[in-house]
């Protein structure tokens, strides 16, 4: 199909599709005037039934916790898939990471970069842990905190210590953490089954609203997701870095 025909086909179809959807949107409630039953029911019931104050976390990990299980495993599948696609091929070899410029022997990160990395690493780590642990109280949660935690390790790479990062992620420790995070969520959900309850039912003590140990399983599930997401992003980042830095064509150097 020629470039021109394709673009014309696209534009004409886009116009028609837009007209159709414009007509469909007319039947939706006005922006800002939504009155569905779902949200209010959750917000009314979660305080009494779950001692939870954060609506999004309550929906994510309790009311619709099963969706989140699928979501967590989607990330898990993406990591497995990315590692499958980014494996070293038989025609490739590993080599030492070294500077592409010929006149430099090794890579010396500038002191400012190194210093900033050293500074940012612990703070980002702490912020990530905070966001994960308070996921059921304040904005954030396992997914957001996990991404922050992975970012902390990304600072290690940015400050030039990518050897360290690759070392951390190359072993099977991170992969085991990832599997443990994913399986942990699933297993927390099975605990109620032994007492004759439903899967993912929130049967732990509910505590006092607003405290770190409250809302039953919510903090636990947040931690499981946090571990999974951190490990998942570390694995993906290091897989891509390995491709760029270490893997080259040819059998042996």
């Amino acid at each position: 199909m020629s470039e021109r025909f394709r673009i014309m086909l696209y534009l004409v179809s886009a116009l028609a599709f837009a007209a159709a959807l414009r007509a469909a949107f007319a039947g939706l409630p006005d922006f800002g005037a939504y009155c569905g039953a779902y949200g209010p029911l959750v917000l009314e019931s979660m305080q009494g039934m779950r001692h939870a104050q954060q609506g999004v976390a309550a929906v994510t990990f309790d009311y619709r916790g099963f969706d989140t299980l699928g979501e967590e495993f989607m990330l898990f599948a993406a990591v497995a898939g990315a590692l499958l696609l980014l494996r070293r091929q038989e025609s490739e070899r590993f080599r030492e990471p070294k500077d592409q410029a010929g006149d430099r022997a090794g890579i010396e990160p500038a002191p400012a970069v190194l210093g900033l990395g050293l500074l940012m690493f612990p703070f980002t780590l702490l912020l990530g842990i905070y966001v994960v642990l308070h996921g059921h109280l304040t904005p954030g949660g396992g997914f957001q905190g996990g991404v922050l935690l992975a970012t902390a390790f990304y600072y290690v790479y940015l400050s030039g210590e990518y050897g360290d990062l690759l070392e951390v992620a190359a072993g099977d420790t991170v992969a085991r953490f990832e599997a443990a995070g994913a399986a942990g969520f699933l297993l927390v959900g099975t605990v109620p089954l032994f007492t004759g309850h439903r899967y993912l039912q929130n049967v732990l003590p509910l505590g006092n609203m607003g405290e770190p140990f409250s809302a039953g399983t919510l903090p636990l599930l947040n931690c499981a997701v946090g571990i999974e997401v951190t490990a998942a992003f570390l694995l993906v980042i290091s897989a891509f870095l390995r491709q760029v830095l270490l893997i080259r064509k040819g059998k042996h150097s």
Binding site: F73, F76, A80, A175, R176, A180, A182, A183, L187
Partner: peptide, 8 residues
Amino acid sequence: FLAAVLAA
């Protein structure tokens, strides 16, 4: 569950 175990 087994997918997670096998990955480990």
